[in-house]
Design a protein around this nucleic acid. Structure first.
Length: 484
RNA sequence: GGCCCGUUGGUCAAGCGGUUAAGACACCGGCCUUUCACGCCGGUAACAGGGGUUCGAAUCCCCUACGGGUCACCA
């Protein structure tokens, strides 16, 4: 059995897209699960749109997701270089071979002439395409044309043939070559086109499995034709269906956040994103859906990849992310929260060890309320802000009860007598207050909550009070009572 | 438009000729909690339509409809 070699080959024309992330994930899982190699190759042959900063961005997103590559850009390997614009010579060598073998030829048609040909097609009611004008130019004609015209190299598509693709996820797919025009493999500026460069690279880098998005399925016959002309066996293809937006069209900006980086900024966990993405287009055998990367690696297989496209469901991502936020170590989640709290002005400067410990207490309660880290700032005011203004009507009313002064007094007394306030201990104290005053819960808990937070809803009092301490409790009670 | 791929609850999906058609998210109800959230338990909800094949079709075949992809000197 041949050693598995897969690749992710993005064009650096934008940040890493959620769909692209799913593609790398599948390649990564397949490689790791088979002791194989994942290659990262940069397809930057679109000189207009490719930018180094995008390449950096994509690499950063990949590293953040933990989808590391074994070979390719930055890490090197036996088939360097891994950036297509640095591999031009290779493409020209093979193009020359294809020409010599009669599989490719130079074409001198100008833009105007191509437009004429398209017009002819349109008038005949056919689809506009290239009419193979330059297929059989004589050496003399070529020489003459070459004097004042640039040329491209076209692949000569054989007529009347059928190309069969055995796709691991889609089964056997057939295409007739007559529907494919002679396509350009080297542009007039000497840069190869995608369909050509991808084949040369995958062949030369000995890629064994191509796992990519379904949008490439229609391109595959061209690539297979190229493999044949080169005398190389094509790799195994696995075309994974697309990720769609809510309206079932290809996911784009208007569907919300589409780049991995945006999710990172909002405070999603890479583990959660990988877990979620793995579930888009692939399904495990059992009923469990939460998986660590190790589990995904051992579970993933191409024959459980679905044929139908999947609509991106942000609610489910949020659910999975929320699960990870609640179940990851509190130290890590707290560290993650700090930047958001700083930005919102809740914390400034460096944290002492005691601050950090206290913050962990806050976060361990507040994390029950959020789906992604940026939301944390909406749930921590109650721990930081002692000078709240009571606007909640229910809270205001609750503080006006006759029993309120006695309740609050007794609570403070009890808190002051404790050396160490723990949630369990506070729970007991609250019960004692109710019992000793012979009052129902509503007359005790609601006023206390109102006095301490200014609101009728919020975290458990036994979680809140230990985090505030007796002094701040006293201060808040005073502050609140002053407002009625 | 040609070619290609697809169509199971609102969404992700299991199913690969015989099932009470899983599970997850969302939604609804209950429990826990004298609040909210978390958590736990339960519920509503689906085989696009029409023809075949078969004793029997969500599963196999054909047609229709719908959705998507692709047909560039973009990738």
């Amino acid at each position: 059995m041949q050693k598995v070699r897969v690749r992710f080959a993005p064009s650096p024309t934008g940040p890493l897209h959620i769909g692209g992330a799913r593609s790398v994930l599948f390649n990564y899982l397949y490689a790791k699960g088979h002791g194989g190699t994942l290659i990262l190759r940069i397809e930057d042959t679109d000189l207009e749109r490719s930018k180094r900063e995008y390449e950096e961005g994509i690499k950063n997103s990949l590293r953040w997701l933990g989808l590391t590559w074994d070979e390719g850009i930055d890490v090197g390997g036996p088939y360097e270089p891994y950036r297509q614009t640095e591999r031009l010579e290779l493409y020209h060598q093979y193009a020359q071979k294809l020409i010599e073998a009669g599989h490719a030829y130079e074409c001198f048609c100008t833009e105007e002439e191509l437009e004429e040909q398209r017009e002819i097609c349109r008038q005949k009611g056919e689809l506009p395409r290239y009419l193979n004008r330059c297929r059989n130019l004589s050496p003399a004609e070529k020489k003459k044309l070459a004097e004042d015209r640039k040329s491209v190299i076209r692949f000569l598509v054989p007529e009347g043939q059928v190309v069969e693709i055995d796709d691991v996820v889609r089964g056997q797919v057939r295409y007739e070559t007559d529907g494919i025009g002679d396509f350009i493999i080297i542009k007039s500026d000497g840069i190869p086109t995608y369909n050509y460069a991808v084949v040369i690279d995958d062949a030369q880098m000995e890629v064994t499995h191509i796992i990519r998005g379904e949008e490439h399925l229609s391109n595959t016959p061209r690539q297979v034709l190229l493999y044949k002309a080169l005398g190389i066996d094509p790799p195994v293809f696995a075309h994974v269906s697309l990720i769609l937006g809510k309206d079932r069209s290809k996911m784009s900006k208007r569907h919300g956040d589409t780049s991995v980086d945006e999710y990172k900024k909002k405070g999603y966990l890479p583990e959660a994103i990988n877990n979620f993405l793995a579930l888009m287009g692939w399904s495990p055998e059992g009923e469990e859906e939460i998986f660590s990367m190790e589990q995904l690696i051992s579970l993933f297989s191409l024959d459980r990849v679905a044929k139908n496209p999947a609509v991106f469901d942000l609610e489910k991502l949020n659910h999975i992310n929320g699960y990870y936020i609640r179940n990851s170590s509190i130290e890590m989640i707290t560290k993650m929260a700090v930047p958001y709290l700083q930005e919102a002005g809740y914390i400034k400067g460096n944290l002492t060890e005691a601050d950090e410990k206290w913050l962990q207490g806050v976060i361990s309660v507040a994390r029950n309320y959020i789906s992604y880290m940026a939301e944390i700032v909406d749930h921590v005011d109650v721990y930081f802000n002692d000078r709240f203004i009571i606007t909640d009507d229910a809270a205001l009313q609750a503080l006006k009860g006759d029993q309120v002064p006695a309740v609050l007094d007794l609570l403070q007394q009890k808190l002051n007598n404790e050396l160490q306030l723990t949630p369990d201990r506070v729970k007991e104290l609250l019960k004692e207050v109710a019992a000793e005053l012979s009052l129902g819960g509503k007359k005790v808990f609601l006023p206390i909550r109102a006095a301490l937070t200014g609101a009728a809803r919020g975290p458990e009092l036994h979680d809140l009070i230990p985090l505030l301490g007796a002094e701040r409790v006293a201060a808040r009670i005073k502050h609140s009572l002053g407002q009625i």
